[in-house]
């Protein structure tokens, strides 16, 4: 029973990592860049929903605030691409990496200015009540996180595989110039993917804020989501979710069965192990160029 309880709480945490990792993978799949600020996107999404919902701010009903948050974050992502990232179009990935790290710093600073540094909780209808299934206690928020994550991953997967826009995004990442020749408006497509990843971050933020308190440093969770994305292999959406679940499940078990100092290094040790033995993740898509 204890194992089951650990597993369930690990799954719920893992889904949050998976959601952030989805954001990484979306952007990586469509632009070949990695958004190191994705964790901070999630933090901003959480704070926006908190600002719209909580009594001391706007006090809107949750079910209006949630879609509003998602649209705000989508627009935010699109505008960010339009005004900032488009300057780096076609440049080397490292520049984008450094740029997004810097953006993370700025977002954290701005969130601290607006919402303060005290941890706050979202007054969410998801946070009420627990489910008891055969001795396993499951918060309603945890259930919501798991359900929404799986639905979202399925939806995004279908979007990339089936729709014209999804295919255009994949083409734009594989070879920008060839995509131009095929008539794909590469820059606009990249803007859209940043919007989509903003929306994903908003979903992650709302769910994360329903599960517990948030503060401007919540975005540092993004580092664990990296582990998730790498384990899954950047570029695979189901892989990101699987990676997130693996990291999420390992954490409570390591905390329970390993000595104190060793438990928190478990996700990173796993990350390094995966990088050493399967450098491009479990769901690898990389092939080395022959010379």
């Amino acid at each position: 029973m204890e194992v089951l309880q650990l597993l369930v709480s690990g799954l719920a945490n893992g889904c949050v990592y998976g959601l952030i990792a989805l954001g990484f993978v979306l952007i990586y799949k469509a632009t070949e860049a990695v958004n190191f600020a994705q964790g901070d996107f999630m933090m901003i999404g959480a704070f926006v929903s908190l600002g719209l919902t909580n009594a001391e701010y706007m006090h809107l009903p949750f079910w209006i605030a949630a879609p509003l948050t998602i649209s705000i974050m989508a627009v935010f992502g699109y505008l960010l691409d339009l005004f900032v990232l488009r300057h780096l179009f076609g440049q080397n990935q490292t520049a984008v990496v450094i740029l997004t790290i810097a953006m993370g710093f700025v977002l954290r600073f701005v969130a601290g200015l607006i919402w303060g540094h005290e941890p706050q909780t979202l007054e969410s209808p998801l946070a009420l009540g627990d489910l008891h299934i055969g001795g396993v206690v499951l918060g309603m928020a945890d259930v919501a996180v798991i359900v929404v994550t799986f639905l979202l991953t399925w939806f995004l997967y279908q979007f990339f595989q089936r729709t014209k826009l999804g295919l255009a995004m994949q083409a734009a990442s594989q070879n920008q110039m060839a995509a131009y020749f095929m008539g794909i408006p590469v820059k606009r497509v990249q803007g859209l993917i940043w919007g989509l990843s903003g929306a994903t971050a908003a979903v992650a933020g709302i769910l994360f804020a329903s599960k517990g308190a948030i503060d401007p440093n919540a975005g540092l969770l993004g580092i664990k989501a990296f582990a998730a994305a790498v384990i899954g292999g950047f570029g695979s959406l189901p892989g990101a979710l699987a990676g997130g679940l693996i990291v999420g499940v390992i954490e409570p078990f390591a905390a329970r069965y390993f000595a104190a100092g060793y438990s928190q290094i478990a996700p990173y040790a796993l990350l390094l192990a995966v990088l050493v033995f399967r450098p491009h993740g479990l769901f690898s898509q990389v092939r080395v160029k022959k010379v």
Partner: peptide, 28 residues
């Protein structure tokens, strides 16, 4: 030796993990 088989972002992420691990290893 193992890490440099990676490149681009993978290398950046592996080195982030190193930096996080260093803190814990010093405590251990």
């Amino acid at each position: 030796i193992p890490v440099l088989r990676l490149h681009g972002i993978y290398l950046a992420i592996a080195t982030i993990a190193l930096s996080v691990l260093a803190d814990d290893i010093i405590v251990l």
